[in-house]
Nucleic acid binder design. Structure first.
Lengths: 340, 340
DNA sequence: TTTCAACACGCAAACGTTTTCGATAGAGGT
DNA sequence: ACCTCTATCGAAAACGTTTGCGTGTTGAAA
């Protein structure tokens, strides 16, 4: 087993100083052609590679981005990571991923772990618990220490930093407006509890669309789901009692669950009831019927977040000007929506 | 902005030496109660945390695991990462994720990037291109440098290291056996091209099950798919020409695609044709009908891989004894299989 | 022969830790 | 007064780099 070779070992072997070796490898004109050749040949032979940790310590830069997200077994978050990774790689950065599991404590612990020099900056999406507690001290702490943070999707106004989001409210508005213009009259909403920021925004979009088109908003047409595991009764009640002709669901899990329940109750999608979901994931594409949905491009979102972070990292002057970028969404029509 | 405080700064501020500060914080009995208190109070006030990079350099350990997988927007790989992350975290390790995008070159580049001190060991699954080229020099290189590697799922016999896999062949055998015992006579296979190791193994399982039960194996009942984008014609031909009553697909994408095509051709699943897939992902759970499948527990797989790697890392003696762990699979029956 | 520039290279600091090995001083004993 | 021991602390090395600056050698010009 041949352990990794260091400058010191090369220096000893060639009977020159460490600095001579280093300069030779970096093609410094200070070193004679002869020695340079010799050192480079030797280094190549022994497959010398500078130690990254030593470089990080010296340069005070790790060329590593920390990602903190609630979960990874989730199509949207996976695409975001993919987008981040791609841009990061193009710029010579690595990504280190931590999962909060929707837990505030784990989010704090993970940020603490990474904030001690392991990374140059964060890209993160808030856990549900953090959004519920509205406690952002851990985030402000790292920002105060001069470590840039970019938040995406689940963000908060209470901390100043770069953000990249979609216009959740507008996207929901457009979906509901599509229903209205298609002639649907009884449009229901399946959404999350209000403390989930994106859920709230999408709910607002639903409500505004109805109001703007002079349609009544009824609490009975809105189902707020806390726990996906046992939400069936609530949705069944909605379908039974209110007989909606269209349903807007704020994520694809809610959408597919609603469709399955409707099927079970003998309603046909889209013949009896139309459905639009949110997030263009695997489920929407492959379920039967395939689900019309608002597509939020996770790859693009991750890419933008990475770009913003890297630009801030490689900027020389500190810039207190934070921006929030909007990623366009698109209404993708599939089989779950009928045209009346 | 308050930058991170170092031992040196604390030492200067308190007018003691760096070593005194370090020892105080680690509660060394060498230091008087007085000074210890003073230093600890100061450190707490300024929220001192040891710099991870410096520790890594000194200890020659980064407490970081490198993961290299073909893609992340993929339910199975995402669950594996999740499993790794969990075990890693419990043991104080971080994970840094690189994607090969099924490309040999990217796999090599990524391993090179991480092998220079950034991580303590690898957990990886081979890219398709690597499996095709059968070139594993990059992997053997890092192993030779004393960096442990654990391979999962897509492995190769050509490199000696710890591995964690499922018994692909046996699992496929069991699925096909289930079809046979249920009374199906015309059992078809939708699989990958042979160079994908797991695809080949599952194909073997299919063939062996048929042979062992005295059923004929026909090339015409086997469709090998190279590119998922344009595989429709091949599958349609199979359905049309051979009229199978049962289909075993080696992944869930093939399974759902087959079901969709069957539906389009007027066949009902499971009434006219039964389907079993592989990998218990989102698609299998949420498509209509839900798909019977062989469940391979990614969380458990990732967890085991992480456990193997960490144990090897924290072992003092070097051990040349490599093991291959098998993760149990399970046949999950859902709506896509009929009982005759 | 003296002087001086150019060339080629080494020294040492710095990044932030931990840890080994002294060093100093005071207390206590003879 | 001298020795020893203990308590408390500091100096320095080490991890692997990079880089500014100092230094020695050489050859040529004066």
């Amino acid at each position: 087993m041949r352990r990794k070779v260091t400058l010191k070992q090369i220096a000893k072997e060639l009977d020159v100083s460490i600095s001579t070796v280093s300069k030779s490898l970096r093609n410094s004109p200070e070193i004679s052609e002869d020695t340079r050749q010799k050192v480079q040949a030797f280094a190549k032979l022994y497959n010398y590679r500078p130690n990254n940790i030593a470089l990080s310590l010296k340069n005070k830069k790790t060329k590593t981005i920390g990602i903190i997200i609630p979960e990874i077994v989730h199509h949207f978050f996976a695409t975001v990571i993919s987008g981040i990774e791609q841009v990061a790689n193009e710029n010579g950065y690595n990504v280190i991923v931590c999962l909060s599991d929707e837990s505030f404590d784990k989010e704090v612990i993970n940020m603490d772990m990474l904030a001690n020099g392991s990374i140059d900056g964060f890209i993160m999406s808030l856990s549900k618990e953090t959004q519920l507690k509205k406690d952002f001290h851990h985030i402000e702490e790292v920002i105060n220490q001069g470590m840039p943070v970019v938040m995406f999707d689940r963000v908060t106004n209470e901390v100043l930093c770069d953000k990249v989001i979609i216009d959740d409210q507008l996207a929901a508005y457009r979906a509901v407006e599509f229903f209205i213009k298609s002639g649907f009259k009884k449009i229901a909403l399946v959404t999350t509890v209000d403390y989930v920021s994106v859920g709230k925004l999408r709910t607002d979009g639903y409500i505004n669309a109805l109001i703007d088109h002079d349609m009544s908003v009824s609490e009975n047409m809105i189902v707020k789901i806390e726990d996906i595991e046992n939400c069936a009764s609530k949705i069944e009640k909605l379908l039974n009692d209110k007989k909606p002709d269209a349903i807007f669901a704020v994520n694809e899990l809610f959408a597919v669950t609603t469709i399955k329940l409707a099927n079970k109750m003998g309603m046909k999608v889209p013949d009896d009831i139309s459905v639009i979901g949110f997030t263009d994931g695997i489920i929407s594409q492959f379920s039967t019927p395939s689900i019309s949905t608002i597509s939020q491009n996770g790859i693009k979102m991750g890419g933008r977040a990475a770009k913003m972070l890297i630009e801030r990292l490689e900027m020389d002057e500190e810039n207190e000007q934070y921006t929030t970028e909007l990623i366009e969404t698109e209404l993708v029509l599939r089989e779950s929506t009928a045209t009346l």
